[in-house]
Structure formats: C-alpha cells, structure tokens
Amino acid sequence: MNDFVNKFYKNTKTKRKYCRFKRAGISYVDYKNPEFLKKFVNEYGKVLPRRITGNSLKFQRKVGRAIKIARHLALMPYVSDTHENEPS
C-alpha cells in the first residue's frame, strides 16, 4: 500500500528556493534601475511576497524600500494595468 501512495508524492518535492542576492553577492539594491526591480513586482505593480521571490528578509526589505523610492521618482508605476504591458 505504501509504494502505491509514494508514487503520487514522488515529483511533488518543492524546489529549494534561494536568495539571488546572497548567491550573486550583490549587496546594494539600486533604486535607479527599474528593469531590475521589475522582477520583484507583479503585473499590477505590486511588490511580490518573499515566499514567491525567495529573497532573504534582509534583501526583501532593501528591495521593498528601493521600489518605493523608484515609485516616488516616477521610475516605476504605483499601479499598472495589465493590458498596458501586453504588446499591442
């Protein structure tokens, strides 16, 4: 019976998430380049949670702060509607 059940749980092992900053050795999140910060924002312009980005707490805060400054400086939108990003 056990083998029968194990068959179903074989490929559901979650992939180990890693913090890209620790791995790449980046230590400063620059608020001036929005292309990089767009990776941490969903298509509505909202900041993605840590469980999805996989960031460590220290860098998730740095990213959050950088995104808020970028929004203030109109480098990034506060709210972006989805059909604006789709290629027309």
């Binding site: 929005p34 929004r71 109109a74 480098l75 990034m76 939108p77 506060y78 972006s80």
Partner: peptide
C-alpha cells in the same frame, strides 16, 4: 535628460 514618467505628475 528628458525621460517619460511612469505616471503623470
């Protein structure tokens, strides 16, 4: 220089 803003100010 001149850049497009993400939202109108």
């Amino acid at each position: 220089g001149l850049k497009k803003l993400a939202y109108p100010i």
